[in-house]
Structure formats: structure tokens, C-alpha cells
Design a binder for these strands. Structure first.
Length: 271
DNA sequence: AAGCTGTCCTGAAAGC
DNA sequence: TGCTTTCAGGACAGCT
């Protein structure tokens, strides 16, 4: 499940190699979450300026417009000089003079969208409501606490919503709340300032660590070289229901919040 | 405005 | 053994 670390690991694994490449053509497979928004043939001849990331989106700047890549929950990108013929879940091949970037996405929650620029209505709809980058300079502790105070929903769901801080998905939300010692059901507005600061620090710590070890490979995530991540080996609570907490041996509990699984330690995490 | 729920998709695992 | 059901989740649309 690609969250911020997995998307960033993916970006780092091919961004430099594709920078400056000229697009030969784009082949699209089955429909993804949203239509491309442009004729695929219109991309031929364009040049890749660079690849940035915003939340869980990769922004591939071209000399005309921008390609937005999203990995959904089962997507991965692979970049190679030559790709084998596409399988049933290979839904996009961006063929360039430096190699082919392939989007593999069995569940097709992912997307590839071309916009003329980032002020385009479609780009604004996708990116405009995103919160701050947790690993950037704008993840301010006081502002984070102030934003949480306006929300009555459980903290776990507020983190997932992505409009305060981006990139924290289901795995890292549970993990960060564990590190911060906060119960996922706690209303965001009831988190004191010191605890909000601890949570901010926990989010940074967990995402940074996940990034260092190449992200989490739960089912089949891998970077553009095809390499797995290893954060799943360090997870404290996610997917560990019924197993002992690594700190206190209390059994990890699993609950449902907004049709999503949440994991926490009832002893280490206080309301 | 904030916060619910439904929806999309397919493979793996569980249930019968 | 083989079928059917359930579950996993990112993020939008549409509603209250």
C-alpha cells in the first residue's frame, strides 16, 4: 500500500534516470481510476523535465504540462531500458529514449493524469486540498496543533484525511499514533499541545525511518528497480492484532474506523 | 465546514 | 476439492 515513504522511494529510484528523457509514446492498458485527460499520442516528443512528489502523487513535469502519477493501493512503477511485453495488470508504459516507465496496478485504484499545468482545474481538484508535507520545512508544530483543535473526528481519521498533513496512510497512521502514545479514537480537538507536538514528531520519525529502509512491502510493493522495502519488519502495531506489544506485552487490538482497520496497544496508547 | 457513507477494483484468504 | 464470501484500502462524490 503505497503511502508517502513508498511513493518517495519510488521517485528516488527513477527520477534522475528519466530526467531529460524524450517521450517516444505512451501505451495505456485498462482504464485506471481517472482518464488520462489527453490523447496519449499528444505526449509523443515531449521531454521530461523532472519528477517531484506532492503527498502520494508523483508530478512528472514535461516541457508541456505535467503527468500526475498515483499508485493507489496496489500500484508500483518500474523503470528499465527494455520491458517485457505487458502483463494483464500493466496499465501504462511511458516509453522514452532512456527507458520505459511501467505502471503495474492489479486493483487499478491508481491513476495517470495529464494536465496542461498545475493551475489547471483538474490539477487543483486533485492537489489543491492537500495538507502540508510532513518531511518538509512547513510541518510546523504550533500550526499542526491549531489545525487539530478544529476537528472533532478521531485523530486516526483526521490523519488519514490528508487535508492537514499528507502522506500518512493507514499503516503509518497507526504506527505514528503508537509512537506518540495516543489512542486512535481520541478526538483530534482533545489532544493537548504537548501531545500534538509529540504526534508531529512521531509522524516525522516513522515516515523518515520507513523511507530509510525502502518503505513497507506488504504484498508486492517494490521500487522502480524492483527492490522491496523492509519497514514491515519494524511495525509495532499494524497487522499485529492479537500479538504482544513490543514494549509492554499487552495484546495489540484491532478496531474499525471509517471502514478501515486500526491497530493499537491499549496500554501504551492513552485516550 | 466537517464528517459521514458508498464506490471503484482484484487477488488472497477464509468459510462452507 | 471447489465454490462463494469477505477483506484489504486511497481518495473522490454526494449527502447530511
Amino acid at each position: 500500500m503505497p503511502e508517502l515513504p513508498e511513493v518517495e522511494v519510488t521517485r528516488l529510484s527513477f527520477a534522475e534516470r528519466i530526467q531529460g528523457a524524450r517521450i517516444t509514446f505512451l501505451r495505456m492498458g485498462k482504464p485506471l481510476r481517472w482518464p488520462l485527460g489527453t490523447q496519449a499520442t499528444d505526449l509523443a516528443g515531449l521531454r521530461v523535465i523532472g519528477v517531484d512528489r506532492r503527498g502520494k502523487y508523483l508530478l512528472m513535469h514535461l516541457d508541456q504540462g505535467c503527468l500526475l502519477w498515483h499508485l493507489g493501493m496496489s500500484g508500483s512503477l518500474h523503470f528499465a531500458a527494455h520491458q517485457p511485453s505487458p502483463g494483464p495488470h500493466d496499465h501504462a508504459d511511458l516509453v522514452t529514449d532512456r527507458g520505459t516507465l511501467r505502471l503495474h496496478d492489479p486493483r487499478r485504484f491508481g491513476a495517470l493524469v495529464h494536465v496542461p499545468d498545475l493551475n489547471d482545474a483538474r490539477a487543483v481538484k486533485l492537489l489543491g486540498g492537500l495538507g502540508v508535507e510532513p518531511l518538509g520545512p512547513d510541518f510546523d508544530p504550533q500550526a499542526f496543533h491549531a489545525a487539530l483543535r478544529l476537528r472533532r473526528a478521531p485523530i486516526k481519521q483526521v490523519l488519514l484525511a490528508g487535508d492537514i498533513v499528507v502522506g500518512v496512510g493507514n499503516i503509518y497512521a497507526s504506527e505514528a499514533l503508537y509512537v506518540a502514545g495516543i489512542r486512535p479514537t481520541t478526538p483530534a480537538c482533545r489532544i493537548s499541545r504537548p501531545r500534538a507536538l509529540r504526534l508531529r514528531q512521531a509522524i516525522v520519525q516513522v515516515l523518515t525511518r520507513a523511507l530509510e529502509v525502502g518503505g513497507s512491502t506488504l504484498r508486492d510493493f517494490s521500487n522502480a528497480h524492483g527492490e522491496s522495502g523492509y519497514f514491515q519488519l519494524e511495525m509495532a502495531v499494524y497487522d499485529r492484532a492479537g500479538e504482544p506489544c513490543r514494549r509492554c506485552d499487552t495484546l495489540v487490538r484491532q478496531i474499525r474506523q471509517g471502514q478501515r482497520s486500526t491497530f493499537y496497544c491499549p496500554t501504551c496508547q492513552k485516550q
